[in-house]
Write a protein that binds this DNA or RNA. Sequence first.
DNA 1: AACTGTATTAAACACTTGTTTAATCACAAC
DNA 2: GTTGTGATTAAACAAGTGTTTAATACAGTT
Lengths: 228, 228
Amino acid sequence: MPPTDLNMTPGDSTRGRILLEAGPIFAEKGFRATTVREICEQAHVNVASINYYFGDKRQLYHQTVVLAREMRVEQVPEPNWDDTTDPQQKLLDFITLILRRLVAMQTEPWQVRLLMREILEPTETCKHLVEEYFRPFFDTLCGIVDDLVGHRLPEPTRNKIGFSIIGQCLYYRFSAEMTRLLIEQQDYVDQYDLDNLAHHIHLFSIGGLKQYQTLENLRPPNSIATKQ
Amino acid sequence: MPPTDLNMTPGDSTRGRILLEAGPIFAEKGFRATTVREICEQAHVNVASINYYFGDKRQLYHQTVVLAREMRVEQVPEPNWDDTTDPQQKLLDFITLILRRLVAMQTEPWQVRLLMREILEPTETCKHLVEEYFRPFFDTLCGIVDDLVGHRLPEPTRNKIGFSIIGQCLYYRFSAEMTRLLIEQQDYVDQYDLDNLAHHIHLFSIGGLKQYQTLENLRPPNSIATKQ
DNA sequence: AACTGTATTAAACACTTGTTTAATCACAAC
DNA sequence: GTTGTGATTAAACAAGTGTTTAATACAGTT
Protein backbone atom coordinates (compact mmCIF):
# COMPACT_ATOMS: atom_id res chain seq x y z
CA MET A 1 0.00 0.00 0.00
CA PRO A 2 1.38 3.42 -0.94
CA PRO A 3 2.15 5.98 1.80
CA THR A 4 -0.27 8.83 2.48
CA ASP A 5 2.19 11.57 3.47
CA LEU A 6 -0.06 13.09 6.11
CA ASN A 7 1.47 15.98 8.04
CA MET A 8 4.54 15.94 5.87
CA THR A 9 6.17 18.70 3.90
CA PRO A 10 5.22 18.07 0.28
CA GLY A 11 8.06 17.93 -2.17
CA ASP A 12 10.25 15.57 -0.22
CA SER A 13 8.46 12.41 -1.24
CA THR A 14 7.41 11.25 -4.68
CA ARG A 15 3.78 11.68 -3.65
CA GLY A 16 4.38 15.22 -2.47
CA ARG A 17 6.25 16.08 -5.62
CA ILE A 18 3.33 14.93 -7.76
CA LEU A 19 0.95 17.03 -5.63
CA LEU A 20 3.02 20.19 -5.96
CA GLU A 21 3.48 19.78 -9.71
CA ALA A 22 -0.14 18.83 -10.37
CA GLY A 23 -1.53 21.91 -8.59
CA PRO A 24 -0.30 24.59 -11.00
CA ILE A 25 -1.26 22.50 -14.02
CA PHE A 26 -4.79 21.79 -12.79
CA ALA A 27 -5.10 25.47 -11.89
CA GLU A 28 -4.03 26.59 -15.35
CA LYS A 29 -5.92 24.15 -17.53
CA GLY A 30 -8.68 22.66 -15.40
CA PHE A 31 -9.28 19.04 -14.52
CA ARG A 32 -10.31 17.80 -17.90
CA ALA A 33 -7.66 19.46 -20.04
CA THR A 34 -4.85 18.44 -17.74
CA THR A 35 -3.14 15.19 -18.69
CA VAL A 36 -1.53 12.82 -16.25
CA ARG A 37 1.38 12.53 -18.63
CA GLU A 38 2.15 16.24 -18.36
CA ILE A 39 2.03 16.10 -14.57
CA CYS A 40 4.31 13.08 -14.47
CA GLU A 41 6.74 14.67 -16.88
CA GLN A 42 6.96 17.81 -14.71
CA ALA A 43 7.39 15.75 -11.55
CA HIS A 44 9.85 13.36 -13.19
CA VAL A 45 7.87 10.29 -12.25
CA ASN A 46 6.40 7.44 -14.22
CA VAL A 47 2.85 7.73 -15.57
CA ALA A 48 1.75 4.86 -13.37
CA SER A 49 2.71 6.73 -10.18
CA ILE A 50 -0.51 8.74 -10.04
CA ASN A 51 -2.66 5.65 -10.00
CA TYR A 52 -0.30 4.06 -7.54
CA TYR A 53 -0.40 6.93 -5.02
CA PHE A 54 -3.83 8.48 -5.54
CA GLY A 55 -5.99 5.79 -7.08
CA ASP A 56 -6.94 7.87 -10.09
CA LYS A 57 -6.72 11.33 -11.61
CA ARG A 58 -9.87 12.57 -9.86
CA GLN A 59 -8.60 11.83 -6.35
CA LEU A 60 -5.33 13.53 -7.14
CA TYR A 61 -7.29 16.62 -8.17
CA HIS A 62 -9.23 16.58 -4.91
CA GLN A 63 -6.04 16.48 -2.89
CA THR A 64 -4.55 19.43 -4.79
CA VAL A 65 -7.61 21.56 -3.99
CA VAL A 66 -7.40 20.72 -0.29
CA LEU A 67 -3.71 21.54 -0.32
CA ALA A 68 -4.35 24.80 -2.16
CA ARG A 69 -6.73 26.01 0.54
CA GLU A 70 -4.35 25.06 3.34
CA MET A 71 -1.45 26.82 1.67
CA ARG A 72 -3.47 29.96 0.96
CA VAL A 73 -4.64 30.28 4.57
CA GLU A 74 -1.07 29.91 5.71
CA GLN A 75 0.32 32.35 3.15
CA VAL A 76 -2.18 35.10 4.03
CA PRO A 77 -3.13 34.86 7.72
CA GLU A 78 -6.17 36.54 9.22
CA PRO A 79 -5.76 39.94 10.91
CA ASN A 80 -5.85 39.79 14.70
CA TRP A 81 -8.56 41.92 16.22
CA ASP A 82 -9.49 42.57 19.83
CA ASP A 83 -12.66 43.89 21.46
CA THR A 84 -11.62 47.47 20.92
CA THR A 85 -11.04 47.22 17.19
CA ASP A 86 -13.20 49.68 15.25
CA PRO A 87 -15.78 47.95 12.99
CA GLN A 88 -14.83 50.25 10.12
CA GLN A 89 -11.23 49.14 10.51
CA LYS A 90 -12.41 45.54 10.63
CA LEU A 91 -14.23 45.99 7.34
CA LEU A 92 -11.15 47.46 5.71
CA ASP A 93 -9.05 44.61 7.06
CA PHE A 94 -11.55 42.08 5.79
CA ILE A 95 -11.67 43.59 2.30
CA THR A 96 -7.88 43.61 2.28
CA LEU A 97 -7.88 39.97 3.37
CA ILE A 98 -10.15 38.93 0.49
CA LEU A 99 -8.08 40.89 -1.99
CA ARG A 100 -4.87 39.37 -0.69
CA ARG A 101 -6.01 35.81 -0.22
CA LEU A 102 -8.60 35.24 -2.95
CA VAL A 103 -8.03 37.93 -5.52
CA ALA A 104 -4.26 38.35 -5.33
CA MET A 105 -3.97 41.47 -7.49
CA GLN A 106 -1.42 41.49 -10.32
CA THR A 107 0.00 38.08 -9.42
CA GLU A 108 -2.10 34.94 -9.60
CA PRO A 109 -0.84 32.05 -7.47
CA TRP A 110 -1.95 28.64 -8.66
CA GLN A 111 -3.75 28.07 -5.39
CA VAL A 112 -6.03 31.03 -6.13
CA ARG A 113 -6.76 29.88 -9.65
CA LEU A 114 -7.66 26.44 -8.39
CA LEU A 115 -10.00 27.74 -5.69
CA MET A 116 -11.69 30.04 -8.21
CA ARG A 117 -12.33 27.06 -10.45
CA GLU A 118 -14.18 25.40 -7.61
CA ILE A 119 -16.34 28.50 -7.08
CA LEU A 120 -17.18 28.76 -10.76
CA GLU A 121 -17.81 25.10 -11.45
CA PRO A 122 -18.05 23.28 -8.15
CA THR A 123 -17.12 19.62 -8.01
CA GLU A 124 -17.75 17.38 -5.01
CA THR A 125 -14.69 18.98 -3.46
CA CYS A 126 -16.48 22.33 -3.18
CA LYS A 127 -18.92 21.15 -0.50
CA HIS A 128 -15.95 20.43 1.70
CA LEU A 129 -14.53 23.83 0.81
CA VAL A 130 -17.72 25.71 1.69
CA GLU A 131 -18.18 24.14 5.11
CA GLU A 132 -14.56 24.28 6.18
CA TYR A 133 -13.62 27.59 4.67
CA PHE A 134 -16.14 29.85 2.95
CA ARG A 135 -18.93 29.64 5.54
CA PRO A 136 -16.85 30.77 8.55
CA PHE A 137 -15.32 33.41 6.30
CA PHE A 138 -18.73 34.75 5.32
CA ASP A 139 -20.00 34.62 8.92
CA THR A 140 -17.15 36.88 9.97
CA LEU A 141 -18.18 39.42 7.36
CA CYS A 142 -21.81 39.26 8.45
CA GLY A 143 -20.75 39.99 12.01
CA ILE A 144 -18.95 43.13 10.88
CA VAL A 145 -21.99 44.22 8.86
CA ASP A 146 -24.20 43.79 11.92
CA ASP A 147 -21.88 45.97 13.99
CA LEU A 148 -21.76 48.68 11.35
CA VAL A 149 -25.50 48.84 10.69
CA GLY A 150 -26.22 48.95 14.39
CA HIS A 151 -29.48 47.05 14.36
CA ARG A 152 -30.63 43.59 13.37
CA LEU A 153 -31.30 43.21 9.64
CA PRO A 154 -33.38 40.43 8.08
CA GLU A 155 -30.98 37.63 7.19
CA PRO A 156 -31.49 37.79 3.40
CA THR A 157 -30.85 41.53 3.47
CA ARG A 158 -27.70 41.14 5.50
CA ASN A 159 -26.53 38.38 3.18
CA LYS A 160 -27.05 40.56 0.14
CA ILE A 161 -24.93 43.28 1.71
CA GLY A 162 -22.24 40.69 2.27
CA PHE A 163 -22.46 39.55 -1.33
CA SER A 164 -22.21 43.18 -2.49
CA ILE A 165 -18.93 43.55 -0.65
CA ILE A 166 -17.52 40.22 -1.76
CA GLY A 167 -18.80 40.73 -5.28
CA GLN A 168 -16.89 43.98 -5.65
CA CYS A 169 -13.70 42.19 -4.62
CA LEU A 170 -14.12 39.04 -6.66
CA TYR A 171 -14.84 41.08 -9.78
CA TYR A 172 -11.14 41.83 -10.03
CA ARG A 173 -10.36 38.15 -10.05
CA PHE A 174 -13.08 36.82 -12.33
CA SER A 175 -13.04 39.66 -14.82
CA ALA A 176 -9.36 40.49 -14.57
CA GLU A 177 -8.42 39.43 -18.08
CA MET A 178 -11.41 41.08 -19.70
CA THR A 179 -10.85 44.28 -17.70
CA ARG A 180 -7.31 44.42 -19.05
CA LEU A 181 -8.79 44.43 -22.53
CA LEU A 182 -11.19 47.21 -21.52
CA ILE A 183 -8.92 49.80 -19.94
CA GLU A 184 -5.46 51.16 -20.54
CA GLN A 185 -2.78 48.67 -19.60
CA GLN A 186 -0.77 51.34 -17.79
CA ASP A 187 -3.76 52.50 -15.73
CA TYR A 188 -4.35 48.94 -14.63
CA VAL A 189 -0.85 48.69 -13.21
CA ASP A 190 -0.82 52.16 -11.63
CA GLN A 191 -4.35 52.64 -10.37
CA TYR A 192 -5.51 49.20 -9.41
CA ASP A 193 -3.02 48.12 -6.79
CA LEU A 194 -4.23 46.41 -3.67
CA ASP A 195 -4.33 49.35 -1.24
CA ASN A 196 -5.98 51.59 -3.80
CA LEU A 197 -8.71 49.07 -4.51
CA ALA A 198 -9.25 48.20 -0.87
CA HIS A 199 -9.69 51.89 -0.12
CA HIS A 200 -12.27 52.32 -2.86
CA ILE A 201 -14.29 49.21 -2.02
CA HIS A 202 -14.24 50.17 1.65
CA LEU A 203 -15.43 53.71 0.96
CA PHE A 204 -18.10 52.58 -1.49
CA SER A 205 -19.35 49.88 0.87
CA ILE A 206 -19.54 52.19 3.89
CA GLY A 207 -21.76 54.39 1.76
CA GLY A 208 -23.88 51.43 0.75
CA LEU A 209 -24.20 50.33 4.37
CA LYS A 210 -25.43 53.77 5.44
CA GLN A 211 -28.51 53.21 3.30
CA TYR A 212 -29.50 50.38 5.64
CA GLN A 213 -28.80 52.28 8.85
CA THR A 214 -32.04 54.21 8.41
CA LEU A 215 -35.00 51.88 8.76
CA GLU A 216 -36.99 53.50 5.98
CA ASN A 217 -35.06 51.68 3.28
CA LEU A 218 -35.94 48.31 4.71
CA ARG A 219 -39.35 48.04 3.11
CA PRO A 220 -39.49 45.61 0.21
CA PRO A 221 -39.28 46.99 -3.33
CA ASN A 222 -42.90 47.86 -4.07
CA SER A 223 -43.58 47.84 -7.80
CA ILE A 224 -40.31 48.91 -9.28
CA ALA A 225 -40.86 50.56 -12.62
CA THR A 226 -38.67 48.86 -15.20
CA LYS A 227 -39.08 48.81 -18.90
CA GLN A 228 -39.85 45.60 -20.77
CA MET B 1 -17.48 26.17 -51.49
CA PRO B 2 -19.89 25.85 -48.59
CA PRO B 3 -22.55 28.55 -48.00
CA THR B 4 -22.08 31.14 -45.25
CA ASP B 5 -25.71 31.61 -44.18
CA LEU B 6 -25.32 35.32 -43.51
CA ASN B 7 -28.53 37.08 -42.50
CA MET B 8 -30.42 33.81 -42.38
CA THR B 9 -32.45 32.28 -39.62
CA PRO B 10 -30.30 29.54 -38.15
CA GLY B 11 -31.87 26.14 -37.91
CA ASP B 12 -33.18 25.97 -41.43
CA SER B 13 -29.91 25.01 -43.05
CA THR B 14 -27.45 22.30 -42.07
CA ARG B 15 -24.94 24.98 -41.17
CA GLY B 16 -27.44 26.78 -38.94
CA ARG B 17 -28.47 23.55 -37.28
CA ILE B 18 -24.85 22.80 -36.36
CA LEU B 19 -24.49 26.31 -34.93
CA LEU B 20 -27.59 26.05 -32.75
CA GLU B 21 -26.68 22.62 -31.45
CA ALA B 22 -23.01 23.49 -30.85
CA GLY B 23 -23.84 26.56 -28.74
CA PRO B 24 -25.39 24.83 -25.71
CA ILE B 25 -22.71 22.12 -25.73
CA PHE B 26 -19.81 24.58 -25.87
CA ALA B 27 -21.54 26.62 -23.16
CA GLU B 28 -21.93 23.61 -20.90
CA LYS B 29 -18.57 21.92 -21.33
CA GLY B 30 -16.21 24.50 -22.75
CA PHE B 31 -14.27 24.39 -26.00
CA ARG B 32 -11.83 21.68 -25.10
CA ALA B 33 -14.19 19.18 -23.49
CA THR B 34 -16.73 19.46 -26.29
CA THR B 35 -16.33 16.87 -29.04
CA VAL B 36 -17.30 17.42 -32.64
CA ARG B 37 -18.88 13.99 -32.62
CA GLU B 38 -21.33 15.00 -29.90
CA ILE B 39 -22.29 18.14 -31.77
CA CYS B 40 -22.80 16.22 -34.99
CA GLU B 41 -24.85 13.58 -33.25
CA GLN B 42 -27.14 16.23 -31.73
CA ALA B 43 -27.49 18.01 -35.07
CA HIS B 44 -27.92 14.77 -36.99
CA VAL B 45 -25.10 15.53 -39.40
CA ASN B 46 -21.95 13.72 -40.41
CA VAL B 47 -18.73 14.36 -38.48
CA ALA B 48 -17.14 15.81 -41.60
CA SER B 49 -19.77 18.57 -41.84
CA ILE B 50 -18.10 20.80 -39.28
CA ASN B 51 -14.86 20.90 -41.22
CA TYR B 52 -16.81 21.35 -44.42
CA TYR B 53 -18.81 24.35 -43.21
CA PHE B 54 -16.53 26.01 -40.65
CA GLY B 55 -13.01 24.90 -41.50
CA ASP B 56 -12.30 23.51 -38.06
CA LYS B 57 -13.65 23.20 -34.55
CA ARG B 58 -12.14 26.52 -33.42
CA GLN B 59 -13.88 28.59 -36.08
CA LEU B 60 -17.17 26.92 -35.26
CA TYR B 61 -16.68 27.96 -31.64
CA HIS B 62 -15.99 31.54 -32.65
CA GLN B 63 -19.22 31.67 -34.64
CA THR B 64 -21.26 30.34 -31.73
CA VAL B 65 -19.94 33.09 -29.45
CA VAL B 66 -20.80 35.78 -31.99
CA LEU B 67 -24.26 34.28 -32.38
CA ALA B 68 -24.72 34.09 -28.62
CA ARG B 69 -24.07 37.81 -28.24
CA GLU B 70 -26.45 38.71 -31.07
CA MET B 71 -29.21 36.55 -29.65
CA ARG B 72 -28.77 37.91 -26.12
CA VAL B 73 -28.98 41.52 -27.28
CA GLU B 74 -32.14 40.67 -29.17
CA GLN B 75 -33.69 38.70 -26.32
CA VAL B 76 -33.12 41.47 -23.76
CA PRO B 77 -33.30 44.86 -25.49
CA GLU B 78 -31.97 48.08 -23.97
CA PRO B 79 -34.36 50.38 -22.12
CA ASN B 80 -35.32 53.49 -24.06
CA TRP B 81 -34.50 56.71 -22.27
CA ASP B 82 -35.05 60.31 -23.23
CA ASP B 83 -33.47 63.56 -22.05
CA THR B 84 -35.86 63.81 -19.12
CA THR B 85 -35.15 60.37 -17.66
CA ASP B 86 -33.93 60.59 -14.08
CA PRO B 87 -30.32 59.38 -13.65
CA GLN B 88 -31.36 57.30 -10.63
CA GLN B 89 -33.98 55.59 -12.78
CA LYS B 90 -31.33 55.06 -15.45
CA LEU B 91 -29.09 53.36 -12.94
CA LEU B 92 -31.85 51.04 -11.82
CA ASP B 93 -32.68 50.24 -15.44
CA PHE B 94 -29.04 49.57 -16.18
CA ILE B 95 -28.65 47.24 -13.20
CA THR B 96 -31.80 45.45 -14.26
CA LEU B 97 -30.43 45.16 -17.79
CA ILE B 98 -27.22 43.51 -16.58
CA LEU B 99 -29.13 41.14 -14.35
CA ARG B 100 -31.49 40.21 -17.16
CA ARG B 101 -29.02 39.98 -19.99
CA LEU B 102 -25.79 38.76 -18.40
CA VAL B 103 -26.78 37.25 -15.08
CA ALA B 104 -30.18 35.78 -15.93
CA MET B 105 -31.25 34.88 -12.40
CA GLN B 106 -32.54 31.37 -11.73
CA THR B 107 -32.39 30.32 -15.39
CA GLU B 108 -29.13 30.13 -17.29
CA PRO B 109 -29.46 30.36 -21.08
CA TRP B 110 -26.60 28.81 -23.00
CA GLN B 111 -25.80 32.17 -24.53
CA VAL B 112 -25.04 33.58 -21.07
CA ARG B 113 -22.87 30.64 -20.10
CA LEU B 114 -20.89 31.01 -23.29
CA LEU B 115 -20.34 34.75 -22.84
CA MET B 116 -19.25 34.20 -19.22
CA ARG B 117 -16.68 31.70 -20.40
CA GLU B 118 -15.19 34.38 -22.61
CA ILE B 119 -15.01 36.82 -19.68
CA LEU B 120 -13.34 34.25 -17.43
CA GLU B 121 -10.90 32.82 -19.94
CA PRO B 122 -10.81 35.07 -22.98
CA THR B 123 -9.91 33.57 -26.32
CA GLU B 124 -9.22 35.61 -29.44
CA THR B 125 -12.96 35.98 -29.78
CA CYS B 126 -13.12 38.10 -26.62
CA LYS B 127 -11.31 41.05 -28.19
CA HIS B 128 -14.09 41.27 -30.73
CA LEU B 129 -16.61 40.96 -27.89
CA VAL B 130 -15.05 43.78 -25.86
CA GLU B 131 -14.93 46.30 -28.68
CA GLU B 132 -18.34 45.54 -30.15
CA TYR B 133 -20.25 44.93 -26.96
CA PHE B 134 -18.68 45.42 -23.53
CA ARG B 135 -17.01 48.78 -24.14
CA PRO B 136 -20.13 50.65 -25.28
CA PHE B 137 -22.00 48.93 -22.47
CA PHE B 138 -19.49 50.15 -19.90
CA ASP B 139 -19.41 53.66 -21.39
CA THR B 140 -23.15 53.93 -20.88
CA LEU B 141 -22.71 53.08 -17.21
CA CYS B 142 -19.91 55.62 -16.82
CA GLY B 143 -22.17 58.29 -18.26
CA ILE B 144 -24.81 57.54 -15.66
CA VAL B 145 -22.19 57.64 -12.90
CA ASP B 146 -21.03 61.06 -14.12
CA ASP B 147 -24.57 62.39 -13.99
CA LEU B 148 -25.17 61.06 -10.51
CA VAL B 149 -21.92 62.31 -8.99
CA GLY B 150 -22.44 65.72 -10.49
CA HIS B 151 -18.81 66.58 -11.11
CA ARG B 152 -15.95 65.18 -13.12
CA LEU B 153 -14.15 62.30 -11.42
CA PRO B 154 -10.67 61.08 -12.34
CA GLU B 155 -11.14 58.32 -14.89
CA PRO B 156 -9.68 55.49 -12.77
CA THR B 157 -11.99 56.48 -9.90
CA ARG B 158 -15.03 56.54 -12.14
CA ASN B 159 -14.05 53.19 -13.61
CA LYS B 160 -13.74 51.65 -10.18
CA ILE B 161 -17.24 52.83 -9.32
CA GLY B 162 -18.45 51.19 -12.50
CA PHE B 163 -16.69 47.97 -11.62
CA SER B 164 -18.24 48.07 -8.14
CA ILE B 165 -21.71 48.18 -9.67
CA ILE B 166 -21.00 45.53 -12.30
CA GLY B 167 -19.16 43.39 -9.76
CA GLN B 168 -22.17 43.25 -7.47
CA CYS B 169 -24.29 42.04 -10.38
CA LEU B 170 -21.89 39.51 -11.84
CA TYR B 171 -21.34 37.97 -8.43
CA TYR B 172 -24.70 36.28 -8.76
CA ARG B 173 -23.63 34.70 -12.01
CA PHE B 174 -20.08 33.66 -11.20
CA SER B 175 -20.71 32.52 -7.66
CA ALA B 176 -24.25 31.26 -8.17
CA GLU B 177 -23.50 27.60 -7.60
CA MET B 178 -21.31 28.19 -4.57
CA THR B 179 -23.85 30.62 -3.09
CA ARG B 180 -26.48 27.91 -3.33
CA LEU B 181 -24.24 25.73 -1.20
CA LEU B 182 -23.82 28.58 1.28
CA ILE B 183 -27.37 29.68 2.00
CA GLU B 184 -30.74 28.01 2.41
CA GLN B 185 -32.09 26.73 -0.88
CA GLN B 186 -35.53 28.15 -0.13
CA ASP B 187 -34.17 31.61 0.67
CA TYR B 188 -32.35 31.65 -2.62
CA VAL B 189 -35.56 31.08 -4.53
CA ASP B 190 -37.65 33.49 -2.45
CA GLN B 191 -35.30 36.34 -1.65
CA TYR B 192 -33.00 36.56 -4.62
CA ASP B 193 -35.35 37.19 -7.51
CA LEU B 194 -34.44 39.77 -10.10
CA ASP B 195 -36.42 42.77 -8.84
CA ASN B 196 -35.36 42.18 -5.27
CA LEU B 197 -31.70 42.03 -6.20
CA ALA B 198 -31.91 45.01 -8.55
CA HIS B 199 -33.45 47.04 -5.75
CA HIS B 200 -30.69 46.11 -3.30
CA ILE B 201 -27.82 46.73 -5.70
CA HIS B 202 -29.37 50.04 -6.71
CA LEU B 203 -29.83 51.17 -3.12
CA PHE B 204 -26.36 50.04 -2.08
CA SER B 205 -24.72 51.70 -5.09
CA ILE B 206 -26.52 55.00 -4.62
CA GLY B 207 -25.06 55.00 -1.11
CA GLY B 208 -21.63 54.21 -2.45
CA LEU B 209 -21.89 56.98 -5.01
CA LYS B 210 -22.78 59.55 -2.38
CA GLN B 211 -19.32 59.05 -0.91
CA TYR B 212 -17.86 60.51 -4.07
CA GLN B 213 -20.24 63.45 -4.31
CA THR B 214 -18.29 65.23 -1.57
CA LEU B 215 -14.83 66.12 -2.79
CA GLU B 216 -13.12 65.29 0.48
CA ASN B 217 -13.10 61.56 -0.22
CA LEU B 218 -11.20 62.04 -3.46
CA ARG B 219 -7.77 62.20 -1.90
CA PRO B 220 -5.67 59.09 -2.45
CA PRO B 221 -5.47 56.50 0.34
CA ASN B 222 -2.65 57.83 2.49
CA SER B 223 -1.02 55.07 4.51
CA ILE B 224 -3.83 52.68 5.17
CA ALA B 225 -3.15 50.70 8.31
CA THR B 226 -3.49 47.00 7.54
CA LYS B 227 -2.03 44.10 9.41
CA GLN B 228 0.65 41.90 7.92
C1' DA C 1 -29.49 11.94 -71.18
C1' DA C 2 -25.19 13.90 -69.92
C1' DC C 3 -22.86 17.25 -67.30
C1' DT C 4 -21.73 20.18 -63.18
C1' DG C 5 -21.00 21.72 -58.80
C1' DT C 6 -22.63 21.34 -54.12
C1' DA C 7 -23.92 18.34 -50.12
C1' DT C 8 -23.44 14.34 -47.60
C1' DT C 9 -21.55 10.08 -46.28
C1' DA C 10 -18.73 5.93 -44.31
C1' DA C 11 -14.33 4.81 -43.52
C1' DA C 12 -9.80 5.49 -42.38
C1' DC C 13 -5.96 8.15 -40.38
C1' DA C 14 -2.82 9.73 -36.99
C1' DC C 15 -2.65 10.93 -32.48
C1' DT C 16 -3.75 11.46 -27.45
C1' DT C 17 -6.17 10.00 -23.49
C1' DG C 18 -6.37 7.39 -18.49
C1' DT C 19 -5.39 3.10 -16.87
C1' DT C 20 -3.31 -1.55 -16.28
C1' DT C 21 0.16 -5.06 -16.36
C1' DA C 22 4.16 -7.46 -15.43
C1' DA C 23 8.87 -6.94 -14.83
C1' DT C 24 12.60 -4.78 -12.35
C1' DC C 25 14.79 -2.21 -8.74
C1' DA C 26 16.17 -0.83 -3.86
C1' DC C 27 16.79 -2.03 0.51
C1' DA C 28 15.82 -3.66 5.10
C1' DA C 29 15.08 -8.13 7.98
C1' DC C 30 16.45 -12.46 8.93
C1' DG D 1 23.10 -14.43 0.86
C1' DT D 2 18.39 -14.94 0.69
C1' DT D 3 13.94 -13.34 1.11
C1' DG D 4 10.21 -10.14 1.11
C1' DT D 5 8.03 -5.84 0.41
C1' DG D 6 7.17 -1.45 -1.31
C1' DA D 7 8.67 1.76 -5.21
C1' DT D 8 9.44 2.45 -9.94
C1' DT D 9 9.52 1.36 -14.63
C1' DA D 10 8.54 0.42 -19.85
C1' DA D 11 5.19 -1.30 -22.48
C1' DA D 12 0.76 -2.31 -23.83
C1' DC D 13 -4.22 -1.54 -23.77
C1' DA D 14 -8.74 0.14 -25.01
C1' DA D 15 -11.21 4.03 -25.90
C1' DG D 16 -11.71 8.52 -27.80
C1' DT D 17 -9.90 12.72 -30.30
C1' DG D 18 -10.01 16.15 -34.69
C1' DT D 19 -9.33 15.78 -39.34
C1' DT D 20 -9.02 13.91 -44.13
C1' DT D 21 -10.29 11.24 -48.04
C1' DA D 22 -12.66 9.33 -51.68
C1' DA D 23 -17.00 7.80 -52.99
C1' DT D 24 -21.81 8.75 -53.52
C1' DA D 25 -26.31 11.31 -53.81
C1' DC D 26 -28.77 15.05 -55.50
C1' DA D 27 -30.16 18.92 -57.36
C1' DG D 28 -30.28 22.27 -61.67
C1' DT D 29 -28.66 23.25 -66.57
C1' DT D 30 -27.78 22.34 -71.11
